[in-house]
Design a protein around this nucleic acid. Sequence first.
DNA 1: GCGCAAACTTGCCCAACGCGCAATATTGAT
DNA 2: ATCAATATTGCGCGTTGGGCAAGTTTGCGC
Lengths: 156, 156
Amino acid sequence: MENVLATQLLELSQLIRKARQQWLRERPDVPIGTVSILKLIDEIGTAADGGCHAKDLAERSGLDPSTVSRAVAAAVGQGLVERRVDNADRRASTLALTPAGRDLLAAASAWFSALIGRALADWPAGDAERVSCDLGRLVAAFSAVLEETHTLEAAR
Amino acid sequence: MENVLATQLLELSQLIRKARQQWLRERPDVPIGTVSILKLIDEIGTAADGGCHAKDLAERSGLDPSTVSRAVAAAVGQGLVERRVDNADRRASTLALTPAGRDLLAAASAWFSALIGRALADWPAGDAERVSCDLGRLVAAFSAVLEETHTLEAAR
DNA sequence: GCGCAAACTTGCCCAACGCGCAATATTGAT
DNA sequence: ATCAATATTGCGCGTTGGGCAAGTTTGCGC
């Protein structure tokens, strides 16, 4: 069973790579990583009281803090993200999307959603919901085990 | 709905990246791409009459033919894969795993399966099967739409 | 036999994504 | 005052993969 899942996950990762390449061909000005960053800033910023900090971003994305900082700097340079000192903790930066960043995120979301929509076009009603539910469980299960592995390594 | 799925797929791709990095930390001698290549050679070789050709590999993996050729050359150099002229079409190479390649593939499969097993350890019986079934449908749906997109582009 | 295409390989150079270390500055907590 | 947290930036590197060009050999149809 696990072997079947491993194969499916390998296939899925290959498909995701193809989708990303497709995006890149259509939008060479926007690295896919920027889209991920924008999305996470939006989500975290919406959910968290103090807004989105670089540290949150690094944790959520699993990227190295220096990578996150540089990605944010690039997005700031492109006018997609703004950085402000957090008054509650002046060591930290609060990250937020600019209107341009919002527009780009909306466009990217529409692009990926359209792709997914085409894939699921002839699915019976309710199937997408069920698959999404299962995918959510899978994501949660993996998050837990990979987080645990990461924690064990940090303890070394 | 599609937006939820897009988010989940982004999260899943990040988790897959973490798993791959974990593998790389534990097995720096074995690029993850080599594992994928070995796996595909094994699958295609098992399923196809004439064995596995580089062209099959490129199609299945979505990698550029030159990339595939180089990856195969590296695997041959590491004694994991052997290349033979296909007598049915002497332009083509038939790729097959060596015993060492088989061992490595088995080890990698065990590694990833163990990871997945830990993630699903406390799932109720039958749930993994259901999720796998749903994942298979998702993979098939995406394959179809991305293949179609790829075909349209080739026609340009 | 010829011409074209298929199958593949290799050299070369590049792109995209990400890591990690070191150094630095500022702020927060004790 | 000391130490840790938060973040940033420079630098150099690693991993994965693309694409072009050129070349060789073989297969196929005329």
